[in-house]
């Protein structure tokens, strides 16, 4: 694992015990993006942007995040911050998973997919995303590109906050954006060349 870069464009990965980050750090290494870990409040100033990773249960993840004591600092961040998968869902106000109140950086909700034979849950695989706004996060990524999703809960579509949309049974937010906060429901570290492009774009925000 690379040593903390100490500013200079580095990405700080917020550690709170929710999920494995080997593939994410491997992708950052392949792309030559400096990164390090954030375990305490003092670590934030070492980096110029932040990633909130996360897999698993949103309610459980929120509980773990609260235990770190980092929540007030995260809500007050002014540098580019990207939530991935459950890390993105944490940015919303509420999740049906565990009936959980979340960070409320985005005043929108995380809901469960309706399950059927036609629409299996979890939504697993490559789906097309369609950017709805101009934003450098999607620079050089054509509309309709495929990204890799694995999730049972989705963030509702919202005209104000949805940065790109996807459809699986219903339209939902494949990514969200508000000021310096971004979230992606898919896994850029597993989404081929366009996923890598997105991570590179984020490293330049």
């Amino acid at each position: 694992m690379a040593p903390p870069s100490g500013g200079g464009g580095g990405v700080g990965i917020i550690r709170y015990g929710a999920g494995n980050i080997f593939s994410l750090t491997a992708a950052l290494e392949r792309l030559g993006i400096p990164y390090g870990m954030i375990n305490s409040e003092a670590d934030f100033e070492k980096f110029d942007r932040y990633i909130i990773p996360g897999v698993g249960h949103a309610g459980a993840a929120m509980h773990k995040l609260e235990q770190t004591g980092l929540v007030p600092t995260i809500k007050a961040l002014t540098k580019p911050t990207l939530g991935i998968c459950v890390g993105m869902q944490l940015l919303t106000s509420y999740s049906e998973e565990g009936d959980s109140d979340l960070l409320s950086i985005f005043p929108i909700k995380t809901l469960k997919f309706k399950e059927s034979n036609t629409y299996k849950v979890p939504h697993t695989g490559w789906n097309q995303i369609f950017p709805e706004k101009e934003n450098p996060l999607f620079k050089n990524i054509p509309s309709g590109s495929h990204f890799y999703f694995v999730h049972s809960y989705f963030i509702e579509y919202d005209k104000a906050y949805t940065l790109s949309s996807a459809t699986y049974n219903n339209e939902f937010s494949a990514s969200i954006w508000h000021d310096n906060f971004y979230g992606v429901q898919f896994h850029p570290e597993k989404s081929g060349v366009y996923g890598e492009t997105l991570l590179t774009n984020f490293s330049k925000l």
Binding site: T118, Y119, H123, G125, W126, N127, Q128, F130, S143, G144, H146, A166, T167, Y168, N169
Partner: peptide, 22 residues
């Protein structure tokens, strides 16, 4: 083209844009 592809993809042929995997 992308819009056309979306319309053409009936639930039976890859639901809501979700790709069949190889």
């Amino acid at each position: 083209d992308q819009i056309n592809t979306q319309i053409k993809s009936t639930p039976f042929r890859g639901r809501g844009g979700l790709s069949k995997r190889i």
